[in-house]
Structure formats: C-alpha cells, structure tokens
C-alpha cells in the first residue's frame, strides 16, 4: 500500500548487524525494490563504485571504515545517490557531521518501521520522475500539470497555495516551522509575516483537506502534512 507512486529502485543497505540488515532489506524488498546488502564499509564502498544505486541506507558504526568515510568517498566521486544515515540515538555530532558530509537525511536508532518507510519514500520521490499523479484519500495531486482534485472535483489553487502544497509534499512526515515556510515562500511574496502564513495555510486547508488529508497545526511551531496514500 505504501509502495505506490514510486518506481522500482536499486537500494543498498549498509549495516553490520545481520538481523537488522535482514529486517531493513525485508521492509524495502516488500515494495519490489532491488536491495543489496553490505556488512562492512569496504564492501559498501566497492559496491558503490560498481553499481548505481538510487538510495543507500548507511549505518555509521561499521567494523572497518565507518559510514562517514563511505559517504565522503561517495561524494568525492560526485555520485548523486541519496543517502539516509542511521545513527545512534545519543550521537547528535554524528547527525550534524553526516549532513555536513552530504547525507540527505538521518534516522536515529531505534526507529519504527513506518518512520523508516516515510523517509525512504520521501528520498526516492526526489529522484523518481513522478509516475502519474499522487493519490491520497479523497485528494489527487498531479504535480506536473499543477492540478488538484478533491473527490474528483477540480480545485483552483493560487500560486502561493501551490508553493505551500509542494513544500509539504517534498517533506512528508516532517514538521515545517513557520519560519521555514516563510523562507521558502519569500520568492512569491516580499514581506511574509508569520501571520500571513497562517492565512495561507488555513486557505489551503479549506480547499484540499479531506477525510484522509490533514494539515495538522503543531502549536507554537508550524505544520505537519498528514495524508493517507491510496
């Protein structure tokens, strides 16, 4: 159910714990992706040199060269492969370091499968050409032609509302702060106050929210896109 709208991808799982690696491979394999596994940094590095992967799920703690080194070498080769870094929960430095080295996202262990799937989906969507419109419960979004249908009825969105909607779609499962939204939308409007953003959001809500799609307010902070895929 969660595999739809993303094409089949080649994914490398770099994780030295066999049980965890097997679990990750199984989660990813269920969507039909081709999943390879590497249990060490050297092995991962070799695979990455010879095969083009759309996504690498990269553990930092590896027996030989660590995940950072694998990532550094990957980026040295200017490969555009998406990298999802897995770090220990107590290692904020790892997270920051990983993002500096060019990781696309990070996840702290242990994580729920749903969380892992959401991140993977978001990363894969970046590379995949959208395979048709996005289908949510009661809402269809065709990004290419900028068309939105609520229960099969076309809805008109303003330029700003579109920009806002695209922001949410680009970061599913992530909370967007009002400041982030203001920064992203500044191209469309010169002076964006935080109050204006509330106005945009409430307009967008009234147009596209359905029984399966919701823009949740995170009190005092921002918004979270919650949509059930069909």
């Amino acid at each position: 159910m969660t595999c739809k709208s993303i094409g089949l991808m080649r994914i490398l799982v770099v994780e030295d714990d066999p049980l965890l690696a097997a679990g990750l491979a199984r989660v990813l394999g269920r969507c039909g992706h081709a999943v390879d596994r590497a249990a060490s940094g050297i092995q991962a590095d070799n695979l990455l040199r010879n095969t083009l992967y759309e996504l690498v799920v990269l553990d930092i703690g590896l027996p030989d060269i660590d995940g950072f080194e694998v990532l550094r070498r990957l980026r040295l080769r200017r490969a555009r492969t998406n990298v999802l870094v897995l770090t220990a929960r107590d290692a904020v430095e790892d997270r920051v370091h990983g993002l500096d080295l060019g990781a696309d996202d990070y996840l702290t262990k242990p994580f729920a499968i749903a969380e892992f799937e959401a991140r993977v989906r978001a990363l894969l969507r970046r590379t995949s050409a959208p395979a048709g419109p996005l289908e949510f419960r009661g809402l269809t979004i065709d990004i290419e032609v900028k068309r939105v249908k609520v229960h099969d009825v076309a809805v008109d969105l303003t330029v700003r509302e579109w920009a806002l909607l695209e922001l949410f779609l680009a970061r599913p499962g992530r909370v967007l702060s009002k400041e982030q939204i203001a920064q992203q939308l500044v191209n469309y409007d010169d002076a964006l106050s935080l109050n204006t953003i509330e106005v945009y959001v409430s307009r967008l809500r009234s147009k596209i929210e359905t029984e399966g799609v919701k823009i949740r307010t995170v009190r005092g902070f921002g918004y979270l896109w919650e949509a059930e895929s069909v």
Binding site: D17, L19, L20, A22, G23, L24, V27, K109, P110, I113
Partner: peptide, 8 residues
C-alpha cells in the same frame, strides 16, 4: 543493536 533488530 540486537534490541533494535528484535524490535524491527
């Protein structure tokens, strides 16, 4: 690590 695997 084994706990994380078990959980998964």
């Amino acid at each position: 690590t084994p706990l994380a695997a078990l959980q998964m």
